[in-house]
Write a protein that binds this DNA or RNA. Structure first.
Lengths: 241, 241
DNA sequence: GCCGATTTGTCCGTATGTATC
DNA sequence: CGATACATACGGACAAATCGG
């Protein structure tokens, strides 16, 4: 349930677009109209539209209107958009998923690690390796590092279940920003040991740093995906230089 | 040169962050302070800060302040962020780049193509294949489709030079939104023919649809990258459901 | 624990500029 | 030219979160 006004307007329009009540290439009602429909100020509808534009749902055109550019994607792919967990992703695609935790330890971040992960040297972290399977095929190897200070009392059982559930529901911590880098890399021995690589010899690798609501880095993760289970979707708007 | 006030404020703060005048993990001056510094309204500074947050430079915290979470990346990687052309990317990385155009034709989009590209069935498009080389190594195979109606008079020579220059400078068309999907795929015969694949047998594939300032789809591109020349960077903030 | 000062979040109304038709 | 539509900017009001005394 949206708590703010602009958010509920955003959602209402978003649903209408997804249901093609507002069709691809058509124009939204004008701001003036939307103000009356939702009984709010101009800033508020503009805020909602800005969110939709950031999502790639609409595009504003000066003096003309706001055009819908959303097209439903027919591919039954595993999309890793926004900040979404493996579990959510799998559930949405109706696959049976399991997680194994072959490695779970506490380590201290050294200089080399610090440079790679962004954690300060000397930080105590949980170092976890997790194998994610879909329909019993080991598809993803996750290498997680969580700050012990910010994510305390992590256990192997929690890692097997859902770390994000624990972080959000039990610790009440909010995940706000996530920086990601995607590359394609050759497999390592660890990959070969843990994953069902079929005859693939390369992996899609997503490394991410995640910040909590205090703006503190609490997670560094390297997620190594078998190529056939990997699809990343993205929308970019004009960037300010 | 920024034309709007919020944009110049955005840029000023952005530079200060990049120069570490505002350090990683430190707080920006309060909105109240920034209002006085830049002599503007609260909305205007908030707009600038919102842009910086969208870029992953800062993170706002209710009741506390705005924390800098930008870290300079030391990797000399080829980053394909925002909407950036191959040429810009190569230039930024100080490599010698060349483009060959082994295929250049006009075709009509059929039903199958339409579903894949988003162009309407029957649209007349330029179908172009381009091979991009860095320091004389063929690294990227681009398969472009441009609407002939929206991008008229395209020639092989322009394709060899820079299509984006032509679109922006000659046609005066503005590129606004770009939707992208990234996957990892096995190489095809065409890849093998055109690219220096070394001993790689897979490619990073970026497919993108690009919309102009009228909200019309004018380009569909599939960009096939050799894995060692591929790095994608991204920042995600909490998404509204 | 309370209270007040500070800081960010949401929302409103209005004015002016600029692009489109 | 005027009407319509989006873009930018200002100022003010109240809410909510944080922090220090």
């Amino acid at each position: 349930m949206p708590k703010s006004k602009f958010e509920s307007i955003y959602k209402d329009i978003k649903v209408k677009i997804e249901n093609e009540e507002y069709e691809y290439q058509s124009f939204l009602p004008s701001e003036h109209t939307l103000i009356e429909v939702y009984d709010c100020s101009r800033n508020t509808v503009r805020r909602a539209i800005a969110e939709l534009a950031a999502l790639g749902y609409v595009q504003s055109m000066h003096g003309k209107g706001v055009r819908v550019i959303y097209q439903p994607l027919d591919q039954a792919n595993f999309t890793i958009g926004g900040i979404e967990s493996f579990k959510e992703s799998a559930a949405r695609n109706k696959k049976k998923f399991t997680t194994d935790v072959p490695f779970f330890e506490e380590i201290v971040v050294d200089k080399r690690m610090s440079k790679k992960t962004g954690f300060e040297e000397g930080t105590l972290v949980y170092y976890i390796q997790r194998v994610r399977s879909l329909d019993d095929i080991a598809m993803i190897l996750d290498i997680n590092m969580f700050s012990k200070e910010l994510v305390p009392n992590l256990t192997k059982a929690i890692a097997k279940r859902s770390i994000y559930d624990y972080i959000e529901k039990t610790l009440g911590m909010q995940i706000v920003t996530s920086k990601r880098t995607m590359t394609v890399e050759r497999i390592t021995e660890a990959d070969e040991n843990y994953l069902d690589m079929d005859d693939y010899d390369m992996l899609a690798v997503v490394t991410s740093q995640t910040y909590n609501s205090d703006g503190l880095l609490f997670e560094y993760t390297q997620s190594r995906h078998r190529p056939d289970f990997f699809c990343f979707h993205d929308t970019a708007s004009r960037k300010l230089s």
